[in-house]
Nucleic acid binder design. Structure first.
Lengths: 116, 116
DNA sequence: GATTGTTATATATCAAAATGAATAACGCAT
DNA sequence: ATGCGTTATTCATTTTGATATATAACAATC
């Protein structure tokens, strides 16, 4: 039998109490990578361009190395790409989240099961 | 040396995707218990009475057994008290959170340490 | 029955966040 | 120079959530 309650947990990486990375920002980075532009990525995610731009700016600002290189003007009007360091952050964050989720699921199975 | 990034994670218990318990609600339950009233508890937490009342109502609604018994009228105008089941939920939630936080700290020490 | 302090409820106001729209800046191409 | 599409920036609007305010309901006490 399955109890109707479940544990959920969200994880983020902060710097000085300010959000650096979370699930939404990582998804944004992925979309920027596959689309080559902040604008296209924001549309893909149904997020306003301004918010996407703000996230990118803040992430780059908090990071010791930029995660996103932005270019304006040029052949296609410009665009954005993920740096090697940014790609590294994506992979590490998702690794951390995967481990975390596993632990949370364990918690739910081991503890909540015997509560309800 | 201490890296400037740290992992934080928040946990909650949901029912059908709706929040049942989280840190704030548990704190509210504790304050109701020690104050004997929703109004006093809300003031203690600098939370509006309406929000406190809404939380209590929703928790009771989602729970198989009420967490809070509310009385109105009478000698002191009424009041609220935590049920045995509610007390149980408080303790179990805080136990879960404690374990979770330990796991998150481990994650931060083991993983983030070698990132930055 | 009047008093009292809380719960219960509705409405209005405020604050913060997200969104949309508009425009400038940019640099390569033609 | 002009066109193009994106980044960069500002401002007004909308949305969302929380808060403040007011009032009724309630039940024991006096």
């Amino acid at each position: 039998m399955r109890h109707p309650f479940n544990i959920t947990a969200t994880l983020e990486v902060e710097k000085d109490g300010i959000c650096f990375l979370n699930a939404k920002r990582i998804e944004l980075l992925r979309q920027i990578k596959s689309n080559g532009s902040i604008l296209a990525a924001s549309k893909e995610m149904c997020m306003s361009y301004q918010q996407a731009w703000t996230f990118v700016k803040q992430m780059n600002l908090l990071s010791p190395l930029p995660l996103v290189i932005r270019k304006r003007g040029g052949i296609n009007g410009g665009g954005a790409e993920i740096t090697r360091f940014g790609q590294d952050m994506i992979e590490r964050f998702e690794k951390i989240v995967a481990i975390h989720q596993t632990k949370v699921r364990q918690l739910g199975d081991e503890i909540l099961f015997c509560i309800f």
